[in-house]
Simulated assay, not measured.
Amino acid sequence: MPRIEPNIPDSCCISPRFRSNSFRRSLRYQRLPSRLLHLSVLKLDGSSFEVQVARKASVAKLREAVESVFCGMLMNREDVKISWPHVWSHFCLCYKHYKLIDEKSRIKRFGIRDGDLLHFVNRIA
């Protein structure tokens, strides 16, 4: 379908910028940043901490967020070193009855919503 352009005389007082297609392109909808999910993570010792991830985050991004927050909590303690590959090989995050093992899966696939509680479980149980 051919595009119909308005017929604006050259003597019109409208700036050429407003008549050009570049101005229309600059008015295109700009995607707003996605809101973050605020999740609680229950540790094996019964304590918990908060983590924030994008709504469309993968399980791998969720793990990175957990590592980041947990390491931030232990920042002042130099005597504690955590081997995250060792942790993830023995434990995994769990939501309801879903073990979050597949790193490529999106967390929204499991029905995880803002304010939900995740917990650590033995990877093989």
Rank of each mutant, 00 (worst) to 15 (best):
P2L: 11
P2Y: 13
P2M: 11
I4V: 12
I4W: 06
E5P: 03
P6N: 10
P6A: 12
N7Y: 04
P9Q: 03
P9V: 00
S11F: 02
S11Y: 08
C12W: 00
C13T: 06
I14E: 04
P16C: 11
P16T: 01
R19C: 11
S20M: 09
S22E: 12
F23K: 15
F23A: 14
R24V: 03
S26T: 13
L27Q: 14
R28D: 06
R28G: 04
R28A: 07
Q30D: 02
L32V: 14
P33M: 09
R35K: 14
R35W: 07
L37C: 11
H38P: 13
L39C: 10
S40D: 08
S40T: 04
S47N: 06
S48N: 05
S48K: 03
F49E: 08
V51K: 13
V53M: 09
A54L: 09
A54S: 12
A54I: 04
A54N: 10
R55W: 08
R55G: 15
A57M: 05
A57S: 13
S58A: 08
V59G: 05
K61R: 13
K61N: 11
L62A: 07
R63M: 01
E64D: 15
A65M: 03
A65R: 05
A65E: 06
V66K: 01
V66H: 00
S68Q: 11
F70M: 11
C71W: 08
C71G: 12
G72T: 10
G72K: 12
L74R: 05
L74W: 04
N76Y: 09
N76M: 07
R77Y: 09
E78C: 09
D79C: 02
V80C: 04
K81P: 00
K81E: 02
I82K: 15
I82P: 15
P85N: 05
S89M: 15
H90M: 14
H90I: 10
C94S: 03
C94V: 02
Y95V: 00
Y95N: 09
Y95Q: 10
K96F: 07
H97W: 11
H97N: 14
H97P: 02
H97S: 14
Y98G: 01
L100M: 05
L100K: 02
I101T: 06
I101S: 07
D102T: 00
S105L: 01
R106E: 05
R106T: 03
R106K: 10
R106G: 05
R106M: 04
I107V: 06
K108C: 14
R109Y: 07
F110E: 14
G111P: 06
G111N: 08
I112G: 15
R113H: 08
R113W: 05
D114K: 15
D114W: 14
G115C: 12
L117S: 08
L117T: 09
L118E: 09
F120C: 01
F120W: 02
F120E: 00
I124N: 14
I124A: 14
